[in-house]
Design a protein around this nucleic acid. Structure first.
Length: 91
DNA sequence: TAGTTGACCGGAA
DNA sequence: ATTCCGGCCAACT
């Protein structure tokens, strides 16, 4: 029934490799521009590899500002692992 | 069942 | 420039 959760997962799943999308953008695409937090919660509770949660970064985080403090949290190996993955895919 | 928290964002003081 | 507030929806207690 395509709920917010499903939409968010679907959107994140569509993120191409080497690209990053902000929580706000995902939330916007999901149907609720201000529900960026929920996006994090959903992704956090979702452990499927189909959803590249490590490609989702907080707003203002660009390829230049990629730092442990800017990449945001990660349910797998912490911000460090997330940063590593992003750098590896972005290259 | 209801209340509180939470991987955020944008605007305001 | 920094700090505070409200908002959205799902998961946890």
């Amino acid at each position: 029934m395509l709920t917010f959760t499903h939409k968010v997962l679907n959107v994140v799943r569509k993120i191409p490799v080497g690209k990053t999308m902000t929580y706000g953008e995902v939330a916007k695409r999901a149907g609720s521009p201000s529900a960026a937090r929920v996006v994090g919660i959903i992704i956090k509770n979702n452990f499927l590899l189909d959803v590249p949660c490590h490609r989702v970064v907080p707003a203002g985080t660009t390829g230049k500002n990629l730092t442990v403090k800017n990449v945001g949290q990660y349910n797998r190996g912490g911000s460090e692992a997330k940063l590593k993955l992003l750098l590896a895919e972005k290259a």
